[in-house]
Amino acid sequence: MKKVFENLKNGLIKSNPVLVLALGLCPTLAVSTSIDNALGMTAAVLFVLISSNIVVSLIRNYTPNRVRIAVFIVIIATLVTIVDLTMQAFLPELSENLGIFIPLIVVNCIILGRAEAFASKNTPLNSTADALGMGMGFGIAIVIISFFRQVLGTGELSVFDREIFQAPGLTDNPMAIFILPMGAFLVIGVLLALLRYTGVIPNE
């Protein structure tokens, strides 16, 4: 049981997929413009990651080594299509906002990476814990980044149409650069530097 907890914790900080492993940077940069998008993306990634880890782990003893990557990709693509269709049907607005980045979860390295590196060698329980940790690690990183980008870039913070606060002085003259892709690089760079400097993420 201790190992399960260890696996869960691993993805959160020590091997955070975005902040430490630097995986899945493309969706991170692209959809971290608002907290809504970040949360939507996190939910999609969590679902795909957990289900794919479970399925890959369940069939790990039967999967022939030579076709394993093809098998993983078929499983992941199926799950992503399920998410994509469900979102289009029930959350059309969110699906419109996330656009191409939902289908692109198929090629998100976090998911194939965990299938290959973890789920194909571990029990379903441990794989679930790993997926949960990695998925939440991704979520935490992308929500923090989108918090700074939204506040600095638009001067206000609102989550699901509920306004939380307005930054004085920024509302009239927001720093639009933070909404642009350039701003994503700036935020992620400063964040990484700070986390290393303060020792939250250990230097290797």
Binding site: V67, V74, A77, T78
Partner: peptide
């Protein structure tokens, strides 16, 4: 491997 992949695709 061929059979296995075929089954996976069919399930999908």
């Amino acid at each position: 491997p061929v059979v296995f992949l075929t089954i996976v695709v069919c399930v999908s």
